[in-house]
Amino acid sequence: MRRREFLGLIAPSVLVMGGLLVLPLYRTVEWSLQRVNYGEAGTFVGLDNYSAALSDPRLGRAVLFTVGLTAVVVATLIVGGYLLAVMVNGLGRSKPFVLGFLLISYVVPNIVGATMFSWLFDANFGGVVNHLVSTLTGHEVLWFIDPWPNRLVIALDTIWFMLPFSMLVIIAGLQGVPAEVIEASRIDGASTFRTHWSVIIPSIRGVLGFVAIISIMDVLRTFDQLVPLSPQATQIGNESIMLYIYNVAFQDGGQQLGLGSAINVLLILLIVILLYPFIRGIAKEARQA
């Protein structure tokens, strides 16, 4: 392919991404250095927004909450996704049917799924899980007001809609493991657990890493599900980083747009650092392809 052809073919896409991703991103960086409101020219304030962000205890809580949620959810996704993938992969004719059911939570919009999820728990709306728990334990759990029960609901919902992705990618990984290798380990007398732990898991390490990095990126950006699941997120310390940005930079009229932008920039830096090993791999691959 000639250089001119290449440039011609990628031009529309590059223009769209340049105009609607790079320029807005540049704007965010610019805003992060200003005291500014929508539709106005800002005044340059240097790194004030950054120091305000880093010394804000509310941001500290949001980071702690988001990172904790990410750790719990991603660990569950890997372990649960693997177990589920092994079970589903062993199915025969019923596999497409089971997969169809398992995919539902993935295709339903997050905000809609989270709304449905909240109704399982909300005592005001006759939630069935809430009813079950209070009948069994004799306690009335305040799922939306107490920080920890609320965190549990948020984590469960996030796992609920992300598990299908994790499971499907791991199934594909399992199908790539040669049957002979598994056979060989059986013949050598390895137990089922041993076969999984020492043979299958090491050979799909790459896939598990892929699931982990994608899930980490997505949980770090948690936003949609908090709207129905944690109406009092700010008061009870269950505000995610994205929700915090939304609250300071949009919800209250955008008075703190500069601060919100600075947090956006910090979050981007964090994500780029996390992605660094993947970036190196892709760069190598794309040059050789």
């Binding site: 609607l20 807005p24 936003f223 979050l267 981007i268």
Partner: peptide
């Protein structure tokens, strides 16, 4: 190509508000 693909991955991972708030203004 390498640069574009890497950029695409980074953009894919961006916090939405970093582009959507400026889009609102625009």
């Amino acid at each position: 190509s390498a640069v574009l693909l890497v950029l695409a991955l980074v953009f894919r991972a961006l916090p939405r508000f970093a582009v959507v708030l400026p889009m609102y203004d625009l």
